[in-house]
Simulated scan of single mutants.
Amino acid sequence: MLVLNEQETIAALDWSALIDALERMFASDCVMPVRHHHDVKVPNRADATLLLMPAWVPGGYCGVKLVSVYPDNHLSGLPAVQGSYLLTSGQTGETLALINGNALTARRTAAASALAARYLAREDASRLLMVGTGRLSLNVIEAHAKVRSIREVSIWGRNTANAEKTAEQARELGFDAIAVTDLEKAARQADIISCATLATEPLIKGEWLQPGSHLDLIGGFKPSMREADDRAIARARVFVDTRAGAMSEAGDIVQPLQNGSLKPEAICGELAELVGARVPGRRRPDEITFFKSVGAALEDLAGAILAYETALNTKIR
């Protein structure tokens, strides 16, 4: 069995290859049951949660991501979220690889947004606004730069020092990046706005979106979380990674559906329909596009297969 740690997983997931792998997987006959979770009792500490996300390609590969959320892990000096991916043969069930789940999740999440931007962002989009300074921010910047010629990157965060640090790290990667404090001004100037935050109240207002802009929402993974307001929904053509996930879990979709500012039929398409050419992506240079992702198990499977095959081929050589 192949075991890949965090750095080995990152090294095996080249951005361009990963984005292409996700595109192929969304166009495939991958089976993706609904993910499920279990409460786990932890003596003398807060309850934990075990999440399981299975997916398989019949006759190909099968895998499951296991994510453990232990809220009191800070008492032990450990991250609250721990993850791993178990990849097996879809022919025999043989265990093939154990892959670092944190690195896999961060990179496949960013790659999914970049894949959507390949279809929804303007061809000449060059100015990216990154809202949020967490683990995903640098991944999102790097991934988007693989599908569009990003020349300028603005980074906004509630903590100015963190935004400055993230901008410095982006510059070390070769990007012309600056930290900004005026979110409205930065949003009005951006071609692509990516949000990866834990916000429960909208950060991006629809009135700020300029004709031709693309809004990419990553952070809100609960119905109570929002990163953009109803006006943003109303002004844009709306797309999601999967309807099943976004319409039940994402506050940026669930809340507008509940208050009537978004009708189910107004969701123009999901990633599988975009990559399969069953729905059109961007139609005009001046239209505003909106993409909401919550994550899908097939994305993890695509990344795990790529990491396994890349690492195996490297080892054989």
Score class of each variant (00 low, 15 high):
P211M: 15
L22C: 00
L2F: 13
E273N: 06
G295K: 00
A266P: 03
M32H: 01
L274R: 04
E184D: 13
L274C: 03
V131I: 15
A121D: 11
R282S: 06
I19K: 02
N102G: 15
D241F: 04
A307M: 10
V294E: 02
P43Y: 12
N259Q: 09
A302Y: 03
R278T: 04
R243H: 13
M1L: 12
M130S: 14
P58K: 09
E23H: 00
L66K: 12
N139L: 14
E23L: 00
N313D: 13
R158Q: 04
T105D: 15
T88M: 05
V275A: 03
A187Q: 07
A121E: 12
I305N: 05
I155L: 10
Y70K: 12
L136Y: 12
Q91K: 13
A11H: 07
R24T: 07
M25P: 00
L66F: 12
V294K: 01
V3L: 15
G60S: 07
T289G: 02
A163C: 03
A110K: 05
Q255T: 02
I193F: 06
D29M: 01
Q91T: 09
A27S: 04
G134V: 15
G77S: 02
A190I: 11
R235I: 15
K41S: 14
P285W: 03
V147R: 04
G206W: 07
T242G: 08
H74L: 14
D182C: 06
A112G: 11
E164L: 03
G59C: 10
V279I: 12
G93R: 11
I99G: 13
G303L: 09
H37R: 15
L183R: 10
V3H: 14
F291A: 01
G77Y: 11
V67T: 04
D39A: 14
